[in-house]
Simulated scan of single mutants.
Amino acid sequence: MSFDPATLIYNDAGLIPCIAQAESGEVLMMAWMNAAAVAQTLATRRVTYWSRSRAAFWIKGATSGHTQELIDLRVDCDRDCLLAVVRQVGPACHTHRRSCFFTSVVGGETELMAPMVDGAD
């Protein structure tokens, strides 16, 4: 069965959240896609997001080399959120950490859960 990105449910800005998950199951990051970014990701197998601040495509790792190769793109039951299972090269987070989800809130206090690694995107 063929897939059409137009069948997804986008917000008023024409965007859909996409969660990037490593092959291991680790959640790496969340970013936004528009229909063209979804189509480009599927065509190239290089995860492409929509940068809201730059109003332009953002191919993960294009400048840093910390790429995300698409293994599988999954659509949630409401068709309003995506899960990209990826092969991550280098850190996913611009803070030089493997995952953007490195801060834990325990008992009202924050705790950093992951060290920095080389490079960032």
Rank of each mutant, 00 (worst) to 15 (best):
Y49E: 01
N34A: 09
L15F: 07
A36V: 09
M116P: 10
N34E: 09
V89K: 13
V85M: 10
P5E: 01
A39Y: 05
G119W: 00
D72L: 14
S104P: 07
A6L: 12
G65R: 07
F57T: 10
A120R: 11
C18M: 12
L112K: 10
A55V: 12
W50C: 03
W50T: 02
S104L: 15
I71P: 06
G90T: 01
A62Y: 06
C81E: 08
L73R: 06
R46F: 11
A92I: 00
C81P: 07
C100M: 02
D12M: 09
D121R: 08
M33C: 10
M33L: 09
G25M: 07
R98Q: 13
S104Y: 12
T67G: 13
D12Y: 08
G108Y: 05
T63L: 10
W32N: 12
R45K: 15
A35P: 08
A6K: 15
A35E: 14
A20I: 04
M33S: 10
V85A: 03
A55D: 15
D76H: 09
S24A: 11
C93M: 03
N11H: 09
F3R: 04
C18I: 06
P115L: 13
T103S: 12
Y10T: 07
Y10P: 03
H66Y: 04
V47R: 09
C100L: 00
M113I: 11
A35W: 06
R52Q: 10
E69N: 14
G108T: 02
M30V: 15
A92L: 01
G90Y: 01
